[in-house]
Amino acid sequence: MKDISVQQLKEHAKELRKTALTMIYEAQSGHPGGAFSSAEITAALYYGEMKIDPKNPKWADRDRFILSKGHACPIQYAALGLLGYFDEHYLHELRKEGSILQGHPDMKKCPGIDISTGSLGQGLSCGVGMALAGKRDGKDYRVFVIIGDGELDEGEIWEAIMAGNAWKLDNLVIFLDNNGLQLDGTTDQVIPHLDVCKKLEAFGYEVYDIDGNDMQQVVDTLNKINASTSGKPKFVNARTVKGKGVSYMENQLAWHGMAPNKEQYEQAMQELERGF
């Protein structure tokens, strides 16, 4: 980790949430629930952990960030915009015609997107390919992939998980944004995933089980990962809350893909400012 305090990272997470919410409010379209559940992970990676250069987004030795659950992209766009990957005025153009900020991440349009995502279950495979390329080329970059818990329904996720073990990709870190909700209900109602930690251990991963909205735990985990010598790929079961930070959105399925009205927006911004 860089020299940055947990408190500072929490402030960044707050800024990411407020920026993402404003984007969704202005667009009157987008997915706040899954964006908010992954805010601490996104902030910790972009502001504390990753070796990146916003002025040189294609830098060959950079760490990679893949948002496999691409619909949560406003949180990543917020980080990219605030870090200077593109001019901040673009943050007001989410889902607008001709915008670099598409409804789902487009690597050809938006600087800092390492792979286009949006169709669930596919980003992790791309991350595995990037991690493999890094190994083969003798580079020391890492690949961080955020997957949604609903994505565990997809067979391709498990194909990619097996490849990560097969090729001993210790430069691969998977964060499961485990907020327990997917579009049609809870993950237990739709397709139970049972004990994902045991599963990933059995698949050959170094596994961490944390509260993914607790910045201290996210930071501690990244430090442990950095110190690890297991040679295994890493898996973090980040237990999170969908819509985290806004009282009326938390754990509410309806806020998977809905934009707030003016009143809701103002209330949410106040709550986010107060923090949790």
Binding site: M107, I115, Q122, S125, C126, V128, G129, M130, L132, A160
Partner: peptide, 8 residues
């Protein structure tokens, strides 16, 4: 997908 990642 792995091929896509390699290509990037």
């Amino acid at each position: 997908g792995v091929a896509a990642g390699l290509a990037t």
